[in-house]
Amino acid sequence: MRWTEAAALAVILLGCAQAQTPPPQAPQMPAVPAPAAPLVRPGFVVVLDAAHGGSDPGAHLRSDLQEKDVTLALSNRLRSALRARGIDVVTTRDGDVNPSMADRAGTANHAAAAGCLVIHATATGSGVHLFTSSLAQAAPARMLPWQTAQAAYVTQSLKLESEIDSALAHAQIPVTLGRAYVQPMDSLACPAVAVEMAPLVAGHVTEARGISDAGYQKSVVDALSAALESWRSDWKQ
């Protein structure tokens, strides 16, 4: 009996000692060079990155609705709409998983895409928020630093954003434009736009519609696929 008590005490003491040790540092993104910027591109490929997933729910849009589910639903719908138009699509996730930012950028950059859409949803604001990277345009190069690969594509990203802006305006969906400070935008070696869907607030041309309203989602998906359709003929200019 004495020995079991002593053993229990030792276990407790060891536990105490372990509790004193500091938590491990968060892993740093390695400063490895990016894959070579593809100089000869294959056909017209679009990458869809449904943000969040798995253990990262994103924004709590309602008590019963998480952002990660809305972004995946939008990504799936948009993929179908684009494939129906004969456009090749690569997605960074198809289920409730959360690839790392490096993995998302890796998938996108490996696809040598003509356009990358990073899809988010929020309960704040109205309509659709479009964001491009805040990096300044840099000259294209064969090797790009991983963390600022987007710098070589900023001008093209702004053109793609303008194309999407026009299509959403045509569908009478309000748009706000901005520069995003959000990952993995800066690591994407493709014309890239973050598309953040918000509810529709009632205005002089719009009626109030929730973010999960099927008709509203369809009009956003239709506008995005129309924009990418016209981007197919514009992106090489």
């Binding site: 988010h120 929020t122 704040t124 604001g125 928020h129 964001f131 901005g178 400070y181 959000v182 973050a194």
Partner: peptide, 11 residues
Amino acid sequence: PSGIEPETLTL
């Protein structure tokens, strides 16, 4: 509030 726009605007 969580979102690219609301968080960016705060900063």
